[in-house]
Amino acid sequence: MFTLGEFMKHLIKLKINEKNYEFRIEPNILLLDLIREQAGLTGTKRGCDTGECGACTVLINGVPVNSCLVLAIETDGKEITTIEGLSNNGKIYSIQEAFVEEGAVQCGFCTPGMILSSKALLDNNPNPTEEEIKKAIAGNLCRCTGYSKIIKAIMSAARKMRGE
């Protein structure tokens, strides 16, 4: 039997960007806040808190999810990838490079989530059609770019990754 008001802290052990982390947290903490506050990685953004805008997209075991709708406590034993985890030892990741080359960034707020959704797509589908790209990023809202250069960038990154 529990007593109201005595809520336990749980210990969770997870990997964020291939680095091991341990946190003692209450169950009601969102993954988004764990990443931004406790882990201090502010690249992941808060946009709407209801899973509509995709600005908070991270990968959990390679799968893109809205971190504003994930409880931190569920990520025990899992591997999280945030935008900070893509540039390995300072070397820019292919999709990031493609976004740069194609000018696929304006205000930049949707960019981290957008790049992670793109990564998840290309990791599973190295040769996507334009329609498949649109479906993969439909959950990442952008108000600045009109998506056109973002799609070009993903196509370009896919070609490079295929070695073309």
Partner: peptide, 14 residues
């Protein structure tokens, strides 16, 4: 290339 673009794709833009 935009002067702010690397910060934004790396997620370090504040």
């Amino acid at each position: 290339k935009r002067i702010d673009i690397y910060e934004k794709v790396f997620g370090t833009a504040k």
